[in-house]
């Protein structure tokens, strides 16, 4: 995705947006705005993973137009807020690498299950590659989903006994019920 397609909200060009506000009410609004901006951005760019240490490389956190960057500590605190609603999760202890779910894992899983049931694919086995990269899913939202995230989504489905993951080394597949 090229950067030009992204429509930035007005806040993105408002310098105070990049400073964490001390006034409680203002900060709440600010964090809220950041949360939706991050999810929107990730959705448009199909970005599943954010490394906080390299955040300044992402235009989302670095507006070179007004020369403002969001600090790493602030990014982490906003991502932690997103974690509370299931829209993000750190995948390492120091909280440097974050998976972003612009749909929560539950939303993703129902989306995938809907797709499977619409196509009558229950009972058959699909490879993870088919599910995320195959030609059939080109128009689905989960097309090109990152493998690690996909596995997590399917694992939530597995808990509801709607599928079973087959995770051998060579062929990683899933059987839907």
């Amino acid at each position: 995705m090229s950067e030009t397609e992204i429509e930035w909200p007005w806040q993105y060009n408002f310098p105070p947006f990049f400073t964490l506000q001390p006034h409680a009410e203002t900060r709440a609004k600010q964090v809220q705005a950041w949360k939706s901006l991050i999810l929107d951005y990730c959705k448009k760019c199909k970005l599943y993973l954010i490394d906080v240490r390299e955040a300044s490389n992402i235009p989302l956190f670095n507006n070179s137009g007004i020369n403002r960057k969001l600090e790493q500590t602030v990014i982490v605190s906003i991502l932690s807020e997103l974690q509370k609603t299931g829209h993000a999760a750190p995948i390492d202890k120091p909280k440097n690498r974050w998976e972003i779910y612009w749909h929560t894992l539950e939303e993703w899983s129902s989306m995938i299950y809907d797709y499977v049931s619409n196509r009558g694919l229950q009972g058959s086995v699909l490879t993870l590659y088919e599910l995320s990269q195959g030609d059939d899913v080109k128009d689905e939202e989960f097309y090109e989903m990152q493998q690690e995230v996909l596995i997590k989504v399917l694992q939530t489905l597995e808990k509801d006994r709607k599928c079973e993951l087959i995770l051998s080394d060579d062929d990683q597949g899933v059987k839907f019920f």
Partner: peptide, 26 residues
């Protein structure tokens, strides 16, 4: 009083009208 908001950058501390609070989010 939530009437202004700050922009803390290397250029110094600058205050802006609090659009974060007054304008719609998106």
């Amino acid at each position: 009083y939530g009437k202004s908001c700050r922009d803390d950058s290397i250029e110094g501390l600058r205050f802006f009208p609090n659009f974060l609070l007054t304008r719609e989010i998106l």
